[in-house]
Amino acid sequence: MDLGLKLEERHVLVTGGCGMIGSKVVQAFLSAGSFVTSIDIAPRPFDLDHVNLFVLKADITNEKEFENAWQKAEAKYGLVECCVALASLDLSVLKHHQSLADMDMSQWRRTLDVNVAGTFLTARTWLRALQRYDKPVDYPDRVSLILVGSESGHFGERNNADYAASKSAVQFGLLQSLKADAPRIWPGARVNAIAPGPVATPKFWKECQESPEMYWLEAQATVAQKRPVSMAKVAKSILYLASEAWSGDVHGQILNVDSGKQGKVMWTKEECGHRSSTA
């Protein structure tokens, strides 16, 4: 039995590929032998200099700019056989709110513009590109789109409602719509989503240092394995969904990579006044 991923020489396009998690995803696909295009709004130089890596700058909310970048990617490596829609915006660090009541309308619109409209544009560009190619005659039955959601899309975020709402839209409404749509455009096309829990990024560790109770609240109190998810394991889970050899019959599903997270802490001990209710 051949247990290989069979991702060699496949064209994979990753939006947000220069971010903390995105760069790990890019490196994972390169290690699997794929040709990788990374599209990011502000691409940074990668630590690795790889012959199979093509880095482009584009804003996923700008139709013309993004479509031009996509065409350059196809000119370089051909049909995008796997698209990872990872690019998103989280303004919680820059604009922390205790309540939705404190949030500006401009922030709400900006987050949904990037996370929902930008992901829609990515999916639409992928589907339109597929329409330009002869169906499985030219390429094997192995094209897929992977949407990147979040545990916030399941459980919500009291201090981060814009982000949570955007991820719910992507991993539920958009995913289920594409589930029926994509195979009509390309027979056998698959669309799935991954919903990571708290990920052990440098940003996460910085937040834990600034707020000592953060680690317990986010990665222990409601998490079965009592730990955050590593960036490498998020990347490997995306490779699993990309691999037709491993997940060829997985379609329209959300893969929760969250160490067994079951929800959010509703009230901190301080908010409850350390009292045990007997009423």
Rank of each mutant, 00 (worst) to 15 (best):
D90W: 11
D90R: 04
L91M: 06
S92G: 07
V93Q: 00
V93A: 14
V93F: 08
V93Y: 00
L94K: 14
L94W: 03
L94D: 14
K95W: 11
K95V: 09
K95E: 12
K95A: 04
H96W: 15
H96A: 12
H96D: 12
H97V: 11
Q98A: 09
Q98G: 10
S99Q: 15
S99L: 10
L100W: 14
A101D: 15
A101G: 13
A101S: 14
D102I: 01
D102L: 00
M103A: 05
M103G: 06
M103N: 07
D104N: 06
D104P: 03
D104Y: 06
M105Y: 13
S106M: 14
Q107N: 10
Q107C: 00
W108D: 07
R109Q: 15
R109C: 10
R109V: 13
T111Q: 12
L112T: 12
L112K: 01
L112D: 08
D113R: 11
D113A: 12
D113L: 06
V114Y: 12
V114M: 11
V114P: 11
N115I: 03
N115M: 05
N115T: 07
V116N: 01
A117T: 12
A117S: 13
A117Y: 15
A117V: 10
G118M: 07
G118Y: 09
T119V: 11
T119I: 05
F120P: 03
F120R: 00
L121W: 05
L121F: 12
L121E: 05
T122W: 04
T122Q: 08
A123P: 01
A123Q: 03
A123D: 00
R124A: 01
R124L: 12
R124V: 01
T125W: 09
W126V: 09
W126S: 03
L127H: 01
L127F: 03
R128E: 15
R128I: 01
R128A: 05
A129D: 02
A129V: 00
L130H: 05
L130S: 03
Q131F: 00
Q131H: 02
Q131C: 07
R132G: 05
R132V: 00
Y133D: 01
Y133V: 00
D134I: 04
P136A: 14
V137E: 10
D138A: 04
D138R: 06
Y139R: 15
Y139S: 10
Y139T: 03
Y139C: 02
P140W: 01
P140S: 04
D141Y: 11
D141I: 09
D141L: 10
R142A: 03
V143T: 09
S144T: 13
L145A: 02
I146S: 01
I146K: 05
I146M: 09
L147C: 15
L147H: 13
V148E: 08
V148W: 04
V148F: 13
G149S: 05
S150N: 12
E151M: 13
S152I: 07
G153A: 07
H154V: 10
H154D: 13
H154N: 13
F155K: 05
F155V: 10
G156K: 05
G156V: 02
E157C: 08
E157A: 15
